[in-house]
Design a protein around this nucleic acid. Structure first.
Length: 644
RNA sequence: GCCACAGUAGCUCAGUGGUAGAGCACCCGAUUCGUAAUCGGGCGGUCGUCGGUUCAAUCCCGACCUGUGGCUCCA
């Protein structure tokens, strides 16, 4: 007999082979109606799969994220069902649930069009309406091979299954798929779904294998959740930095230099303001250095990049040697190592933190380029720390604090990930053991929770990644702290210890923004273009109500500029309404209107971004002081007079 | 790099096998305005590039370039 322990501690004793459905029914009819699947000892299985083991028994309802994954997986089968009905020759690949929904890969002679999606979606509705039960069947290998004899992709999958693995199929109505499950009880459960888009995807993610057609979709338990998700997609589109970048006149891309932005004056102001901020934060504890952009390949051979990353470097033809034996730097690390070696260092100097804001080039695949988030030319707020091994814990604590403080300025929250040695790496296992041990200990010393990402480290060392969440809940991997025991070996880095002997320092690679380009893209989307005052390219726009007041408005602009505020006069021959609208569309934080009354009294009528006609009149001097204070405090949107 | 889709004025987009149109922006004029688009006029396009089909191509076909969504990659 099997003993099942419910979450409240109660137990049920059942015979092996009992259906979870019957156990759930025994607990309550209402619960059975709400049940999507069950988790036995943490393993999710469906209601119709006979119980084999006892243990913890949790009924998963639509409130459980694991149930949502089951629902979406079933959605993928329904999609395949519909596609098979309409395109009988479509070969079926994989169809898993993913973070925001599910997809299914098909091998078809003719790729899907957007019109096909509408057709498939309509067919899926019919499958859902049919309320076909998902019927699980366990089959032998030969039965499976026979059943999927027309599906080469499935045959390959079967061939990969180990001898001890149970092979199961799931049928929903006319369609049967090789599948481990679990599934919802019947197709009628998947009511709220939407097919989103198609894309090519290599079979099993291998670029040497055939390209399949993937259909992305999402599904939820309720219409409200689906609508909310679709709305969020819409919101993300509305905030798209490529669209806002154009609309707010920040940057442009031109085919003459794919993957490299042309920053406008406004965009450059934003960019420089950000860099200035980072500079200021690093003034006391970091050393900013400049290094060359172009290097002999010998440097990359020494660093170990030449072998693996040459393809991603821009090689430069050297007319003297006739070879492409120089390259634009794709990262700053090796140049900092060279820098470190210009002098002998004492243990008293450590840690030494070099920072550089130079332009970097990486020859990304053309298909990978995307707005500012994936570019070929960018700059990092890149730092390399040279320190004694005994200083690692203190340094990691310092850098973690430094990085988190930076994100806070923008209202971004971060979570930490610890990534260990990847399969492809340089350096001995002993070195990796030490590096991982030291970094993990340092990370735990910070007292912050973290997630483990096995095998996701850099090729030269383990790392801590900082994932930030933006204002609409999307996660971005930004900062990183990478421990490197290899570079000091390769570059023969040394310091003189208290014992007057030579020692090997450790290197820490640290980035906070990742690249400024990508970080600005994130900020644009995070703030939907309505930047905090201190970051706004244009902080105040001064509007005279009529021409004859332009000189008075000019005095206000002067006063603001003298106080270091980025202010502009808009005395264009347009109505006030027109200019107000333009200022709002450009997300100008403050508009200062100067009419006859204000000119006479030395005041301005302030309209804060997004607050409509709710204006505040105040003396010019007071306005300047308040703007200054808000800039200096780097307040998030919603400063005095409110408005974001 | 691979698959699919797209490229028409500075921007957003309509349109056609017989060499093109709107709104906004820009320029000029009128208007001088109290918180989200004043009115009129004008300028502006080798219809991404190159080749093919055709009497004729912006339109059909092919290649290339660039972008978009993915895949792959991401030091």
């Amino acid at each position: 007999m099997l003993v099942l322990t419910l979450p409240d501690g109660a137990t049920r004793v059942v015979a092996p082979g009992t259906l979870p459905r019957d156990v759930v029914a025994g607990i309550g009819a209402g619960l059975l109606r709400a049940a999507i699947a069950v988790a036995v000892n943490g393993e999710v299985q469906d209601l119709m799969t006979p119980l084999r083991t006892g243990g913890g028994f949790v009924v998963l309802t639509n409130k459980d994220p694991r149930a949502l994954a089951v629902l979406r997986h079933s959605g993928a089968h329904i999609l395949a069902t519909a596609v098979r009905r309409l395109r009988p020759d479509a070969q079926i690949g994989f169809g898993p649930a993913i973070d925001d929904g599910f997809y299914y890969d098909f091998g078809v002679s003719k790729p899907f069009t957007p019109d096909d999606l509408a057709e498939f979606e309509a067919e899926m509705q019919k499958v859902v309406a049919g309320k076909f039960p998902f019927v699980r069947e366990e089959v032998t290998r030969s039965q499976a091979l026979q059943r999927f004899s027309d599906d080469p992709l499935k045959l390959e999958r079967i061939a990969d299954l180990g001898d001890d693995e149970v092979i199961s199929t799931y049928a929903d109505g006319p369609f049967t798929d090789l599948c481990r499950g679990p599934h919802v009880p019947d197709t009628g459960y998947v009511r709220h779904f939407r097919l989103l888009h198609t894309a090519g995807a290599y079979w099993r993610g291998d670029e040497k294998r055939p390209m399949l057609q993937r259909i992305y979709a999402t599904a939820f338990f309720s219409k409200e959740e689906l609508d909310r998700h679709l709305h969020q997609l819409e919101e993300a589109r509305r905030r798209d930095h490529r669209v806002l970048g154009k609309a707010l006149d920040l940057f442009h891309f031109f085919p003459v230099s794919p993957g490299a932005a042309f920053w406008t004056a406004r965009g450059t102001t934003l960019y420089n303001t950000l860099v200035d901020f980072v500079r200021e934060r690093q003034r006391d504890d970091f050393l900013e250095v400049k290094t060359p952009l172009l290097y002999q390949k010998a440097l990359w051979e020494q660093s170990g990049h030449w072998g693996k990353y040459r393809e991603n470097m821009f090689l430069v033809h050297n007319s003297e040697t006739g070879e492409h034996d120089m390259s634009l730097k794709p990262m700053n690390c090796p140049s900092h190592y060279v820098h470190y070696n210009v002098a002998k260092h004492s243990y008293r100097e450590l840690p030494i933190r070099y920072v550089t804001f130079d332009v970097l080039h990486r020859n990304e695949l053309s298909g990978a380029l995307s707005g500012l988030t994936r570019v070929r030319q960018f700059a990092q707020d890149d730092c390399h720390v040279f320190l004694a091994e005994s200083q690692v814990a203190d340094e990691v604590r310092f850098l973690t604090h430094f990085i988190l403080g930076y994100y806070e300025t923008f209202g971004l929250t971060a979570t930490l990930k610890f990534a260990t040695r990847p399969p492809e790496r340089i350096g001995s296992d002993e070195l990796w053991d030490r590096a991982e041990g030291a970094l993990r200990k340092a990370l735990e010393g910070t007292g912050r929770p973290y997630e483990l990402k096995e095998g996701d480290g850099a090729f030269y060392g383990p790392k801590i990644d900082f994932d930030v969440t933006d204002s609409i809940g999307r996660a971005w991997q930004l900062g990183t702290i990478q421990l490197d025991y290899n570079a000091p070996e390769r570059f023969d880095l040394e310091y003189v210890g208290a014992d007057n002997a030579m020692h090997r320092p450790v290197v820490i690679h640290r980035a906070v923004s990742g690249s400024f380009e990508r970080f600005i893209a994130i900020l644009i989307e995070h703030f939907a273009g309505a930047f905090p005052l201190w970051l706004s390219p244009e902080q105040v726009r001064v509007l005279p109500i009529s021409d004859d007041l332009a000189p008075d408005a000019g005095l206000v602009v002067r006063a603001l500029k003298d106080a270091g505020v980025r202010a502009h006069l808009d005395a264009r021959n347009e109505t006030l309404n027109y200019r107000i609208r333009d200022g709002e569309v450009m997300k100008t934080p403050y508009m200062a209107v100067v009419g006859k009354r204000e000119a006479e009294q030395g005041t301005v009528a302030i309209r804060a971004r997004g607050t409509g006609a709710k204006q505040t009149v105040m003396p010019v001097a007071e306005f300047v002081a308040r703007v200054r204070a808000e800039i200096v405090s780097r307040a998030l949107p919603g400063g005095f007079g409110a408005g974001g």
